[in-house]
Design a protein around this nucleic acid. Sequence first.
DNA 1: TGTTTGTCGATTGTCGACAATGATTACCCT
DNA 2: AGGGTAATCATTGTCGACAATCGACAAACA
Lengths: 229, 229
Amino acid sequence: MDDDHSILQKPLSQLIADQLKKKIWNKEIEFGERLLESDLAESFDVSRSTIREALKILEIEELVISKARKGTYVATFTEKDLDEIIELRTLIETTAFSKALPKIEACHFNALEKITKEMKIKAQAQDWKALFDLDVQFHRYVVDLCDNSRIIKIYDSLQVQIRTFLMHLDQYYSSFHSFYEEHQALLEALKTKDSSVVKEKVKNHIVYVEEKILGRKEVEDDKVIPNQK
Amino acid sequence: MDDDHSILQKPLSQLIADQLKKKIWNKEIEFGERLLESDLAESFDVSRSTIREALKILEIEELVISKARKGTYVATFTEKDLDEIIELRTLIETTAFSKALPKIEACHFNALEKITKEMKIKAQAQDWKALFDLDVQFHRYVVDLCDNSRIIKIYDSLQVQIRTFLMHLDQYYSSFHSFYEEHQALLEALKTKDSSVVKEKVKNHIVYVEEKILGRKEVEDDKVIPNQK
DNA sequence: TGTTTGTCGATTGTCGACAATGATTACCCT
DNA sequence: AGGGTAATCATTGTCGACAATCGACAAACA
């Protein structure tokens, strides 16, 4: 439907990769599904080489995995994957926030407050998608101040994976208002300029997201989460 | 070694990628050098498509960076990059070690002790290359127990980058014996099974490596080992 | 009947050629 | 002569075809 035969400034393979990503996010392509190069080439009306490059891009983003001579498949997310992602995100984000702390100026607080206020509006409008975008924006804004490109890159990679996972959930378990309050609290924590306070709040926030958004209860030693449909 | 007209079980592009990696490590290709697809294709006697795939593989490993329509270049390592890598390595490795702690059994300690003893031997033989391999082996062995594939993957990626950097140093500034002692101490720390002790020691160890191996601080009684080749 | 082996189709890997784009040079106009 | 513009050249992006390999099915053998 979206014809991209307009002026292409970006490589075609990149556009294809983006479209494929959207298709995965829109559940037009399921987890674990095999991505057949020839079929994709036909459906996108490009050559297989281009598809190949697009798949390599998605592989870098860890959205697909390809095994030699066995094809490439959309990455699957098990409970274990989710645990890993959350653990890593906690580690990376507490560090990034802590590192960003001394660099935060008034202007940054203003930007963050603007985002938070926008959240309040979208929460009242019950616009989940907008809220999610604002969420990403908020966290990414702070992480970006941490001055370590590798940490930022890892965060982005995690964000893509989280988004992919969220998009595949049938329903979200969060209340709109508490979502806004959470980020308000996060902002307040940042304003204390106290590293340990911030770290604690970030950790707390991620646990909150885990429990509320994903509908998980307390994390016990054994995983007792009925996730299968 | 060089002629790959034997039975290839792996994709040609992967072999090329490996060879390119070696070339970078052997300083046959310098940092920041442009990798011209047509030249590489000719020198490896394969098609440009294959070279392209190989470069994409190296891009995933972050050994090269490619800008659209501007070519791909060998990644450069500035002081800032080194700082970033060390910071990230400290974060990842303290976490991984700490997570691995409860999973370490007697058999693991045996394996680690074996590695450490081997280090002592190689230290006496002043075999730097073997020592370096044992070093990687030691750390990777523990990290592997942390039960988070994403953390392991990040660690591997860092290791590749560190190796790339080290290979380009003209000389090392470490004493062989202290190198062995460091890992012995690391092993002792692990045996305490105390998370904070381990984290502290790992942090300390990485700083040690930074200062000694990379010569960021002057070291009094150590030899300077020329980096052959 | 169960196992091995050979053949075939499907799919990925590799190739060389063409197209699009960026950089460089040569040229023209004032 | 200088600055801007058009021709050119080098290099990456894309293409369609061929080759190598894998998986499945069928045939031969015990």
